[in-house]
Design a protein around this nucleic acid. Structure first.
Lengths: 217, 217
DNA sequence: TAGATTGTTAATCGATTAACAATC
DNA sequence: TAGATTGTTAATCGATTAACAATC
């Protein structure tokens, strides 16, 4: 087996971090932050109960990001918060643009909460930018300004909120600008080069799945 | 083993439908609908290639919802569309309300595309309904009208777009109205009775996970 | 001490993929 | 026929859970 025959000075492969873990850690973080000030210690079991998860699962997750676990006591809350924040690198801010300044695009431009996650949306772009000049003090620009803006501001994430039939074109242009990730709110399937991170937020898919669970329970 | 000792006249357990399947079927459907008119046949392999999925996976998915598969030919496109639509019951419309008429709530009220998924949002509710009287011809009502409205219109889905600190309260009221599912866009973890379907659309979680993939690739 | 907790190893579960038989 | 395809059975993979040892 490859694993047992590993050459000694080959670097250890880093602990694998799954997407599932990445989705749970922010939940732990927001739960920990809602706890009353006077609570100093918190156990994996308590977190698991509060969030309807298995206790072993939470324990393993926490062990991946912190070594502050004390038998019988659990974790020091503030230390655990720091460790998760450090792991998730919430203080590193990345820049984004929204393409498509319809209602949804405007809502994302307007949402204050992203800053707490380390996302800063700098501008919106739209084929008809005349409807609004700014949203939440952020400029709504014409599409032909996209490439220049992305390069000048080192945009890392392109957020797509245009209709499905324009999504691939917009996606290609964003990739051409050198962005590293696409956050796709359109219902279209997008083709991206493999080094680009693609995350789909397809509300039509979500609602259909929700309806089905409603029906078949 | 339980399975082998099953009493003969006990009803067969229905084929299990996983959440993953429910999220892929709408993707197949929208892909099939974008195909040019003249294409009459389509194979699982082609769909898999177009959507970056495994071919066996698609084949198994399709077999669960249609028996129209013909060796060497694949599926008749129109028949497959009908079979998937029937399985997903897209023609059954369910009614919903949005609680929280901020930018995001308004965007959801305004989005035409939900009708194609069989979701009809009838009204919005807000603690300060005075800001807007209607969005997309749908009324924005005061919170104290929530219970009456939900009962009168047999609302099945409650969509939550209020800030995190009000989400649980709103959720409890919706559950009290007899809705069957909560679609939660707030970043709060919600406690619901087990018979209520809960789907979280936590954008803070999404963006954090996206940032991490960006970093660690 | 006894109990609560962590953290590890093994088992289970579910979803995906591989292999392959069937056949139009 | 040969090739493209479906559909099934077995294998693999990854994530979760169970069992349990350690210990403060």
């Amino acid at each position: 087996m490859c694993r047992t025959e590993r050459i000694a000075d080959e670097p250890m492969e880093p602990k694998k971090i799954s997407k599932m873990l990445l989705k749970r850690l922010p939940l732990y973080l927001s739960y920990l932050k809602t706890l009353p000030e006077q609570i100093r210690h918190i156990s994996a079991t308590k977190i698991a109960e509060a969030l309807d998860l298995g206790d072993v699962l939470v324990r393993k997750d926490l062990a991946k990001v912190s070594d502050g676990g004390r038998k019988k006591l659990g974790y020091l809350r503030d230390e655990l918060i720091r460790d998760i924040e450090e792991f998730l690198d919430v203080n590193r801010t990345v820049s984004a643009v929204v393409v498509g300044a319809g209602k949804l695009g405007q809502a994302l431009l307007d949402y204050e909460g992203f800053r707490r996650s380390g996302l800063e949306i700098l501008a919106g772009f739209d084929a008809a930018p005349s409807v609004r000049k700014t949203v939440a003090d952020k400029p709504i620009c014409a599409m032909d300004a996209l490439e220049g803006f992305c390069r000048d501001h080192e945009i890392a994430i392109g957020i797509i909120t245009v209709p499905a039939d324009q999504a691939q074109t917009v996606c290609d242009r964003l990739v051409g600008c050198g962005i590293g990730a696409i956050w796709n709110f359109s219902p279209a399937h997008l083709n991206v080069p493999e080094q680009i991170v693609l995350q789909n937020e397809n509300l039509a898919v979500s609602v259909t799945a929700l309806k089905m669970q409603l029906k078949t329970r």
